[in-house]
Design a protein around this nucleic acid. Structure first.
Lengths: 252, 252
DNA sequence: TCTCATTTGCGTACATGGTACCTGAATGGC
DNA sequence: GCCATTCAGGTACCATGTACGCAAATGAGA
């Protein structure tokens, strides 16, 4: 009776272990979510179908709908479960740059451990508690500097944008290869390679050519590349801070 | 016989109007792509199914496979068709900031006209000719300043990251509402609203609360918000430029 | 003009997906 | 021990991408 009005998954708490009548639940949201995450980690989100998850739990697909209204809501739960792995200090330490670098490393590690995470996260507006927690931490580092909330939000967005796209780049073609069923080496060599070679040889895009042929960073280890990009973003943020609105203390 | 080895769509040119024997093609890749784009614009990518596109063209679903190997390749074609609408000058004008602002406005306009574009673009590695053209233009504005190709690529990525996430934010919940079948107002008020209200009232995330309650930019027109963010990114880029590697001219 | 190899049009069919619905089994309060 | 309530999960429906196969069209060579 209460599920006529569709609302956010976070507003529909899981059935409790109440003392009323009725059969006791044999599974739980967390158990289902954990299973979905495990499958998605190993074989991609598209493998985490309702039937497959249920099968892994030894039950039928429709049983899951007692715990999760729609598959999309399960995605939200998966995102939040993954984000719960991002461990952070209780609050900013006073070294905003160090705090944000820590945040960045943790998010990258989580994003690599769950290659589907960033794709899901950026494909829909979702606001699970753990995402809020991480967001709050990032806002905190700027608040400590006395920045306006709008400016803080903007800078956090800037950092997030970098994180998401850098992680995606790092995973990108690996995931694409898996999706198309080719092994990554073959995909790069036989699928994308010939096209890039043709573009390069056409000479139509000389700067793109240079970015392919003359790049120094292309041969760096992924961590190094990530750190370079991160340093640049943090430099940009550092450069921006003094020019932003005066801190609250000075404004009154 | 030639389609055993899977390769990029851009490497498999459309059957030409050759003079050999055989029935003449009744459709074309462009015609199919255009139809797909029209449907996706009006009802979302998920509505642009093979059957639907074919139906719109007055034929059967399987006919499309004479022109496009897989649905994913059709997505690549759609992306590139949309990107072809981004009109740009032949080369940089000397005012890099103006050039990039123009680029940003054009991409935003295109992204709003095709609400599925950014989502597809960021969900997979794709490199159509028109995407390359736009990318080349962006690289050109930095090359003109004498920047190293790796640094130029990094700055272009920074701008792109902002564009993608800003456009996505602007479209975001509108698309989500459409996907779930609710009308946008209801979605905001009945679906997301109650949850955000609960989070706010819990007081667990004070800075998030301020970003919701005390925000000044939240009431701005979308264009204004976009321009604010764009100005900030361009400021950041401007601040970064002097600190980057010395221009090629000085390096020898 | 008559083959005939070649290429397109497209109906049929299959596997796989989300999920609505329904029946039966479990459970605890009265 | 009855009964309202809740969960388990089978069956079923519809939509999707696409493999396969055959008929229709087409133009070159005879």
């Amino acid at each position: 009776m209460a599920d006529e009005e569709p609302t956010s998954i976070w507003m529909q708490p899981e059935r409790q272990e109440r003392s009323g009548p009725g059969r006791r639940p044999g599974y739980s949201r967390e158990q289902i979510t954990r299973t979905a995450v495990r499958i998605a980690d190993a074989e991609g989100v598209e493998a985490a179908t309702m039937r497959r998850i249920a099968g892994e739990l030894g039950t039928g697909a429709m049983s899951l709908y007692r715990y999760v209204p729609r598959r999309d809501d399960l995605f939200d739960l998966m995102i939040d479960l993954a984000m719960s792995e991002v461990e952070l200090p209780d609050g900013p330490s006073g070294d905003w740059r160090g705090d944000l670098a820590l945040l960045a490393r943790r998010i990258r590690a989580t994003g690599l451990r769950h290659p589907w995470l960033i794709a899901l996260l950026t494909s829909r507006p979702t606001l699970g508690p753990h995402l809020l927690r991480v967001h709050e931490f990032a806002l905190g580092t700027f608040d400590e500097l006395g920045l306006d909330i709008d400016d803080s939000t903007g800078l956090v967005a800037m950092l997030n944008d970098y994180l998401h796209s850098a992680i995606r780049r790092e995973i990108g073609w690996l995931e694409e290869a898996r999706r198309t069923g080719l092994d990554p080496e073959r995909w790069k060599r036989d699928y994308m390679g010939p096209y890039v070679r043709q573009v390069v040889e056409s000479g139509a895009f000389p700067l793109f050519n240079r970015s392919v042929l003359d790049s120094r960073t292309a041969h760096l280890a992924p961590e190094e590349r990530f750190r370079h990009g991160l340093d640049r973003i943090l430099d940009a943020i550092a450069a921006l801070i003094p020019s932003l609105r005066p801190p609250r203390a000075e404004r009154r």
